[in-house]
Design a binder for these strands. Structure first.
Lengths: 124, 124
DNA sequence: AGCGCCGGTTCCGTTGCGGTAACCGGGGGT
DNA sequence: ACCCCCGGTTACCGCAACGGAACCGGCGCT
C-alpha cells in the first residue's frame, strides 16, 4: 500500500494552476455568491463586500470576465449603468462554492476546537 | 426577484474566513492530495511538491496540524524521522478537493477558450 | 458655475506570502 | 576530524495582492 508519489503530480504546466478561484483569489468566490440571484451593478456589489475598494473589485470583475465567468453589460445612459451577471459557466461554480460552505458549517466546530487545543499544547 | 443583498453577508467576523484552505493558502490542498494514500515523511512530500522549500512546507504542515487536518509523528531515531498523516477531519477535505478537480477537468476547455476570446477582443 | 452621480482609473504605500540561502543538532560511518 | 543524513529554523528579500485617496468624463440638476 501507500503507492509512491508521482513526482510530476503537480507539474507547473498543469492547467489547473489557472483555476479561476485559484485557491488564491480573495474575492472571486464572494462575487459569485453575490451574483447568484441575478445581475448586479458595480456599486451594488460593493455593499456586501464593503471591505473591497473599487480598484480591487474592478480588477476582480475584469479577470472573471476574461475567464468567461461573468458577462458585463454597459448601458449607454447617464449616469452610467453597468451590470454584471454570471454566465452558465460561472453558475457551475455555485455547486463548488456551496460544497465549500457546507464543509465549513459542518466542520467549523472541530476546526476551532483543534486550534484551541493546539495553542494550549504549544503556547509559543 | 433579485432580492437585495445582505450587507453583512461577508462579515469580517465570519468564521468561514478561517477556512483551512482559505481560498488563499497555496499548498494545503496539494498536501492533502499527497497524503491521500497514507502517511508521508517530510522530504517525501517535497518530491511531488518540488517547487516548495522546506521552510514553506514546514509552515504549511504546522498550520495544518494546528487546524487538526494532519497528525505529526516524530520518531526518536537517527537520522530523525517524522511522518504526517491526514486526520479524519483532513480526510473530509478530499471530497471537496475532488469536486474542485472535477470542475477543472470539466470546464478547463471553456475557460481557456474564454481567455483566448477575451484577449482577442481586448488585446490591451 | 458648481455639484453630484456612476463606474471606474491612477498613483502611491503597505502588508505579507512565498522564496533563497545559510545554518543547526545529534548520531553514525569512515 | 570530517561529512552526511534528516527535519527543520533563521535571516533576509522580492513581488504581487491589497488598500487609500484623489481624480476623471459626461450628463443633469439647481
Amino acid at each position: 500500500m501507500t503507492a509512491s508519489l508521482n513526482p510530476d503530480m503537480f507539474d507547473a504546466a498543469c492547467p489547473t494552476t489557472a483555476m479561476p478561484f485559484q485557491i488564491g483569489d480573495k474575492w472571486t468566490v464572494m462575487v459569485v455568491l453575490c451574483l447568484e440571484d441575478g445581475p448586479r451593478r458595480f456599486n451594488e456589489l460593493r455593499v456586501p463586500l464593503r471591505r473591497v475598494t473599487s480598484k480591487v473589485l474592478a480588477e476582480t470583475l475584469r479577470s472573471m470576465e476574461r475567464d468567461g465567468l461573468i458577462n458585463r453589460f454597459a448601458y449607454d445612459e447617464n449616469p452610467p449603468r453597468v451590470e454584471y451577471e454570471l454566465t452558465p459557466l460561472g453558475r457551475t461554480l455555485l455547486d463548488l462554492v456551496d460544497a465549500a460552505r457546507s464543509w465549513c458549517s459542518e466542520n467549523m466546530d472541530d476546526l476551532v476546537a483543534a486550534r484551541a487545543a493546539f495553542t494550549a499544547r504549544d503556547p509559543a
